[in-house]
């Protein structure tokens, strides 16, 4: 398949908690997962089944114990489970965006600069980056009087929209979304759903966790069910 964006095979993940009584928590094993460009896949399953863990593993924020996560990066494949840090950072700069549930606020940095940063990291000039950031924030109904402020004091919904603006601004070929609409009102939820549909129509690959059934039904092409891990009898 030439159209693959992510091709993960044999994924195994467990957490070994050394400081908490040496507990070993198995999350998944032997998991295979593929996503094509132009489709949106929802990760689904009961709470604690490993949806967020898988999403984080795709971004190399979590380290898998087994398997490969091949990601289409320019004309190449990068294995997010094994690549050198600088190769992974290149994937994150150019290919794969991640919208987490919560914004990690940097003290003193203005909203506009947080949103513009992914463009700046790619070498796009200051003026163009800020112009695009303004456009994103306006579209997501973040009031203009907030743009120059650091988002530490914003409401949950406002912070989430700043996070979404930052994730969508760089036009990544692959987008990972962790409950992007959880803290949003219906109007903004609809806007985000529309943005996801546009990305999909533009041929981007999208993987997400969507708690909201309505949004999920609207944007997703298929559901990837994560089976709760069963200990072999």
């Amino acid at each position: 398949m030439s159209n693959l964006a992510i091709d993960a095979v044999g994924l195994g993940k467990s957490f070994h908690l050394h400081t908490q009584g040496d507990v070993e928590i198995d999350v998944f094993r032997g998991l295979a997962f593929q996503v094509r460009f132009g489709e949106c896949v929802a990760l689904h399953g009961p709470s604690g089944c490993g949806k967020s863990t898988l999403l984080r593993a795709l971004y190399a924020n979590y380290k898998v114990g087994e398997g490969n996560i091949k990601v289409r990066h320019r004309d190449d494949w990068v294995d997010m489970a094994a690549a050198e840090p600088r190769a992974i950072l290149a994937v994150r700069r150019l290919t794969m965006g991640y919208v987490s549930q919560f914004l990690r606020v940097i003290p003193r940095v203005a909203t506009l600069d947080i949103v513009a940063e992914p463009l700046r990291l790619r070498g796009i000039d200051e003026v163009a980056a800020v112009r695009e950031a303004s456009r994103m924030l306006a579209r997501l109904n973040v009031p203009e009087r907030l743009w120059r402020l650091a988002p530490a004091t914003f409401s949950g919904g406002e912070q989430q929209r700043v996070n979404i603006a930052r994730g969508f601004i760089a036009d990544f070929p692959i987008l990972l979304l962790d409950e992007p609409t959880a803290a949003l009102d219906p109007v903004n939820r609809a806007i985000v759903a529309e943005m996801i549909l546009e990305q999909k129509a533009a041929g981007k690959a999208i993987v997400g966790i969507f708690h909201d059934a309505e949004v999920r039904a609207r944007v997703c092409d298929r559901i990837f069910e994560i089976e709760p891990f069963k200990v072999a009898a």
């Binding site: 957490f15 070994h16 984080r56 190399a60 924020n61 979590y62 380290k63 840090p85 950072l89």
Partner: peptide, 11 residues
């Protein structure tokens, strides 16, 4: 390793 990986999923 990657900073966020070492801090969020320390081995």
């Amino acid at each position: 390793g990657l900073t966020d990986q070492v801090l969020d999923d320390p081995q």
